[in-house]
Design a protein around this nucleic acid. Structure first.
Lengths: 221, 221
DNA sequence: CGGTGGGTTGAGGTATTTCAAGGCTCGTGG
DNA sequence: CCACGAGCCTTGAAATACCTCAACCCACCG
């Protein structure tokens, strides 16, 4: 799978919030260029990943091409962690992305001996579960306006720097995350722009500044 | 919370697939009558539950009453397991239901010492996560027909006895699970009945026999 | 420069919801 | 024992939120 990739093994660095100095875990770094698949659904889950820089989308496909993005992974996020032997999503780099990765088996080895690590695996899985549970409510019961508002607040929380949110993903990605079409997402964003709830900066429409978080939050009850 | 309930403490019986004979875990049994709340969203998670007999729905509410059911818990299922201190769903008995319950702290105590138990907690959480991930795809991207088909196959797998599926939940519950209205669910079931994909038995429309699983499965790609 | 990959916007279509009526079953009380 | 109401389910007709199809614009890049 990684045969054609540069294997730039780096010095040991913390992953998962614990120092692996005395363990056998030696993370490596990889780079995936925009649009590249990191792993596919149902492929063996040999590695666990952490985003160093960039952004990743995890999604499932139906046979006719309909796509549901389950999560976006941004700088710092860990993804690809499966308790099972296979990945349940396809993961793709949204932009040029650097990841750190460790062998899953070595991680499990450590977890077998270290209760702290085992606990942190459970914690990560629970965090993922919690996100999925909230997302079920969004997908099952919220309007397009509420979905986009929730998305903006989530991204605001996760990647806003200096008041500006620079979205790495395109409208189609947002739509497939929210269970909408890209046109609907675009229309809602235009609507929120008209209402001065947000503003676009620059020319590519991916830099957004939230002008009225409170108004968005009211849509998120 | 349980002050008004009969505390029929029973002899120790296996929960979570391990025998607690040498641990301090002593499960008790409770009965909840139809429609009763077992715990509420954001309440402290003091107990973990297992359905002995009956059925339970776990759901989230929006402020205006829209409801999303995240899961149905049937005989044998464990629910209410939170890594956090609070429940993230409200749980209600769909029909008269008997549950076994154990104190969450005692379970965590055991997990602290026993790696097998710790691992089984992770496994359960992963199972829940997997279900939620599949359900996101259903809620975000499937048609009403595909949703009902998936629901029928899930229930067929989980509770069919002697070829007959006796649904404990009403149309509204199914609708709130599938992100539809009860009318749409009813229409799709009528449609599948007309097409001889399923048949209703008896008079209350809750006993269903699947006549053509293959045709349903084709809708589930 | 021409093409490609976003993004926006309009017009029309449709799957699902909403609103409404009616039927059936079952438990309860007169 | 039967009438009655409540709960649940179905079905029809109308409304609508969102999707589909299409045109157009703009930035970027070879």
């Amino acid at each position: 799978m990684f045969a054609d990739l540069h294997t730039t093994t780096t010095k040991s660095q913390p992953i998962l919030g614990f120092s692996p100095s005395e363990t056998k875990i030696t993370p490596s770094e990889f780079k995936y260029s925009k649009g590249t698949e990191i792993y596919g659904e149902a492929e063996p889950a040999d590695y666990v990943y952490q985003v160093i820089d960039g952004a990743v989308r995890s999604y499932k496909l139906l046979s006719d091409g309909r796509r549901q993005i389950g999560a976006f992974h941004l700088a710092g996020d860990i993804f690809g962690l499966e308790n099972d032997d296979v990945h349940r999503f396809t993961a793709e780099a949204i932009v040029d992305t650097t990841v750190r990765l460790v062998k899953r088996v070595s991680l499990e080895h450590v977890a077998q001996e270290d209760l702290i690590v085992a606990h942190s695996l459970l914690n990560m899985t629970t965090t993922n579960l919690q996100h999925a549970e909230d997302h079920m409510l969004l997908l099952g019961r919220k309007t397009s306006l509420e979905r986009v508002a929730a998305f903006l607040l989530e991204m605001d929380r996760r990647l806003t720097a200096a008041g500006i949110m620079a979205l790495p993903m395109c409208r189609r990605d947002i739509a497939d995350y929210l269970g909408l079409t890209l046109e609907t997402v675009s229309r809602v964003l235009s609507y929120l722009n008209d209402k001065k709830v947000l503003g676009f900066i620059g020319q590519n429409q991916r830099q957004i500044v939230l002008l009225n978080r409170g108004q968005l939050a009211e849509l998120d009850l």
